[in-house]
């Protein structure tokens, strides 16, 4: 199949201690139904674990959901781990209970998009499509 015809590979997972995975699972299924290959890692992982999986799986985007409130530490730590592995270019999308005032901080730290609780599923899919596609295009041009 031609690369351009596929939506791409994305990682969906959770970092930190909160154990609610209904949201993440729902997004994983929605993305699959939209044609994505979804690497689902489950809950309670460290930023380093997620980064390592993203690298091995060579994903086109990482979607991390958090409800715990620890995003300001965990997400930058994950982006740092990605950079260490020469994978700082993989786009990161953060979803969940993120207070408005933290959004610009996360974006400063390299997060590509923040989707707060209540974002319509279609919007989430559109964001993933756009972000993953852009990354795939980039990968392709320098390949």
């Amino acid at each position: 199949m031609e690369a351009g015809q596929r939506r791409g590979r994305v990682l969906i997972g959770k970092v930190g201690l909160d154990g609610h995975d209904r949201g993440a699972k729902f997004i994983a299924r929605s993305l699959r139904d939209d044609g994505f290959e979804v690497i689902y890692t489950g809950i309670r992982h460290t930023p380093e674990e997620i980064a390592s999986v993203a690298v091995q799986e060579d994903v086109d985007a990482i979607g991390i959901s958090l409800l715990s409130g620890a995003h300001n530490e965990l997400i930058p730590a994950m982006i740092h781990a990605l950079c260490q592995a020469d994978a700082g270019d993989i786009p990161v999308i953060v979803g969940g209970a993120i207070p408005q005032e933290d959004i610009s901080y996360l974006k400063d730290k390299g997060v590509c998009e923040v989707l707060t609780t209540g974002t319509p599923t279609q919007t989430i899919l559109d964001v993933f499509r756009m972000v993953a596609n852009e990354y795939r295009q980039k990968k392709h041009t320098y390949e």
């Binding site: 290959e37 689902y40 674990e49």
Partner: peptide
């Protein structure tokens, strides 16, 4: 999925213990 062409690749969940081990490479 035969309908969307998408897939949930979940085998890895059972192997997350080895996620950061440099001696293990997993690809779904």
């Amino acid at each position: 999925s035969p309908v969307s062409g998408g897939a949930i690749l979940g085998d890895r969940i059972r192997m997350m213990r080895h996620a950061t081990d440099p001696g293990v490479i997993i690809r779904s």
